[in-house]
Design a binder for these strands. Structure first.
Lengths: 232, 232
DNA sequence: CGGGATATTGATTGATTTCAATGTGAGTGG
DNA sequence: CCACTCACATTGAAATCAATCAATATCCCG
């Protein structure tokens, strides 16, 4: 069980908190990342790593948001996941990254040498279990996303997306307004739709009184129930 | 690095080969599965495990093929992956399965208690690393599949599917004829298409001379190049 | 030689894409 | 402070690809 919140709280500041013993983080992947990793700033739209590059590091979002994606030759882009504060990404077991990663906005990302983490996992079976759990969590996310992309209507996709974002951004889950870190094109490429369809679907949901759109990056979920109904 | 082929070769027979010391399999997940798991037969269309069930076991296909899938309330089904001999599946880190699994045809599947494997991984860091690698491999498969489902045409999806199956069934990769273990409906649900579209696309590929269809379960890849071109 | 499941083929519909235009908002410089 | 600009978002009309509805064909098995 990966305690992502534990590091998020302490690491939101400038760097590592001065003197805390960090007992809670020991024997976890998040703890290992915090010990071995340095927080690095990435500006908006800057690449964190590229598809095909050697997978030398593991990453954890401290602040901001990251997209991982693949592009086809003709430019079609599929975003596989959005990574928010606390999320660990780049957990490849192979030698190279199969996706690319970019900062969506200005970001702080903790970067830790993979070899260090792997070595630690070899010594500490709790870290190894945690590394496995984190990878399995990514797997579950990818599987859920497959479901969304497979055979859902545009409305269902957008509703699923909004509910997922709502569940992730607010810690408690009772937050009705969500602040999107990404633009419409990102959402479209995440949902396997065009930007126009995303836009139309959002306005349709607004007309149906399911949501409200105070600004393009801010969405108020007025009726989670009707969104849930679309979530199938 | 999971050596799936090592067990495939030996396990294709009736069960475990009589007296081999199996040095090669030690310290691997496949080896652990072989030590701790019993080969069990599943008949066509029988459920191996269901979504939401406790994830008590890990599985490895010995013979036959397995589909893992999810169904929406209204019956739409998304197949997440097909598992062929040697493939390990059911690697959930959470307490319960997020997908269901069914035997596509009559199958032999090695079933090993998860607790045993996890305990072994806690003792043997090589097994732990291998468990991680196998999970990451599933993750990579799911990510590739997302790409396919996201924003590809029917023709591209079918071409990708055929190439993937060709790469998996024949060990060397030079096998031009592929024998499909699954029916058209399975393919459709895997690709996020209808059965009619799959059928039409296959006949279109046949008319384009990219493939030949001696029977519905047997497909000859006449021009991998043209399929590759569609693979984008 | 049926008979039922599976697969193919045809005609039509419909959701989403595409092409095109307009709207909006934030940042910049006059 | 306002006009300007550029990126981003919305809206509209037409085209297109795949889904749906419907019929026929084929295969496998008893």
């Amino acid at each position: 069980m990966l305690k992502q919140q534990s590091t998020t709280g302490t690491a939101t500041g400038t760097g590592r908190p001065p003197q805390l013993p960090q007992r809670a983080s020991e024997h976890t992947l998040a703890g290992a990342l915090e010990m071995l990793g340095a927080p690095i700033r990435f500006e908006r739209n800057v690449e964190v790593y590229g598809e095909g590059e050697a997978a030398e590091y593991f990453y954890q979002v401290v602040k901001g948001a990251v997209r991982t994606y693949k592009v086809l030759q003709d430019g079609r882009r599929q975003i596989g996941a959005f990574h928010l504060p606390g999320d660990i990404f780049g957990l490849e077991a192979g030698d190279e990254h199969s996706f690319s990663a970019e900062a969506i906005g200005d970001c702080t990302i903790r970067v830790a040498k993979r070899s260090g983490i792997v070595a630690m996992a070899a010594r500490d079976s709790d870290v190894a279990a945690d590394l496995w759990a984190a990878t399995a969590k990514s797997l579950r996310g990818a599987q859920e996303h497959m479901l969304l992309l497979g055979r859902k209507t545009a409305e269902e996709r957008v509703a699923s997306f909004l509910l997922k974002m709502a569940g992730r951004s607010g810690g408690a889950g009772a937050e009705p307004t969500i602040e999107l870190p990404m633009c419409r094109q990102d959402i479209a490429d995440y949902l396997g739709l065009t930007i126009e369809t995303v836009s139309r679907t959002l306005t349709h949901l607004e007309n149906t009184l399911a949501i409200e759109l105070p600004s393009s990056r801010r969405i108020l979920l007025r009726s989670k129930a009707s969104l849930q109904r679309l979530n199938a």
